[in-house]
Design a binder for these strands. Structure first.
Lengths: 163, 163
DNA sequence: GGAAATAGAACCGGTTCGGTTCTCTTTCAA
DNA sequence: TTGAAAGAGAACCGAACCGGTTCTATTTCC
């Protein structure tokens, strides 16, 4: 299974929440509450996203985070790269790093390059706006009928793709 | 970084070697020598590929492995799925597994589904034949001038994408 | 019947990752 | 002016996963 890290997973959730009110800035604690991602985790993710210029941050008492651009101008590829690093199945296709040992002869390099590009294009073709559309209510509802536990664990409730 | 597992990495290398002589069967030990993947690892990978009907195996003294189909009919997606399981960034898009907790409301599910499909299509569009084309000599040459160590470690020499 | 090969499962150590905690800096308002 | 609230950044830790090995059973040919 080629899987996405939790960081990106949660990141999409949080950004999706922000995209519902693109102009508004929200504090990390507020976003954590709204998405049921732990506050510490939320903070970590928001910092990374701000560093990547996907979010703008305001420090101080009335501080918070807001989208740096409209949701239509933020791609999933960007988000993943900000949180997980460059998108590539194999690093040999990434120019600059050369520790493969058979670089010059590697017969599959062209193939991998094509694959990496195809995947990157696929992720760059989806915008945050598309991910956020058709949001019914709050992202993590206060379960009227809890799905399994009596009190839903806030730290584990918000994953988009559980495994 | 969304990365490929070593299993798939080595698997492609081994299959690429087999694809050079599609009709011929080769023993695991022979393939291990030709690709510089450890014999144990090679065996493990070959077993998985045989179980997935990508290879056919012949047991016994003169046994070995051969491609079950022509290289043009084997896709990278197949190979990765055989070695690493289903290709999906998030399992929530995979029908059958439902432990997300917010299934019904998850706003991003359609988006993820699109992304997973795009990635799968990208990998399904590359065949083993394409990966194997333009192979100059043997996959792992006996280095005339060793790249870094005096005696190249056989266990680590064959990775397509070193990291 | 023995050697050579695949089949299959169990096992183990190390790396990475998810998550937390701590300290520092900035900002605003009382 | 000072303290509380918020973000910035780094360090740290436990646990799960993964790469890799080893062991045993089974098949096949000479």
């Amino acid at each position: 299974m080629i899987r996405l890290s939790r960081l990106s997973d949660y990141g999409i959730v949080i950004l999706t929440r922000l995209a519902r009110e693109p102009g508004r800035a929200m504090a990390a604690s507020t976003l954590a509450r709204a998405t049921a991602v732990s506050t510490a985790m939320t903070g970590k993710i928001l910092k990374l996203l701000a560093r990547a210029d996907i979010l703008v941050s305001q420090r101080g008492v009335r501080g918070g985070y807001a989208l740096a651009r409209p949701p239509e101008a933020i791609t999933v590829a960007e988000i993943i790269e900000a949180l997980d690093g460059p998108i590539a199945l194999t690093s040999c296709a990434d120019p600059g790093t050369h520790d493969c040992g058979i670089e010059a002869l590697c017969p599959a390099r062209d193939g991998w390059r094509r694959i990496n590009r195809a995947i990157r294009d696929a992720l760059a073709g989806i915008t945050l706006a598309e991910m956020a559309q058709a949001v019914p209510g709050d992202l993590v509802p206060t379960f009227a009928t809890p799905p399994r536990a009596a009190a839903p664990e806030p730290a584990a409730a918000a994953s988009i793709g559980a495994r």
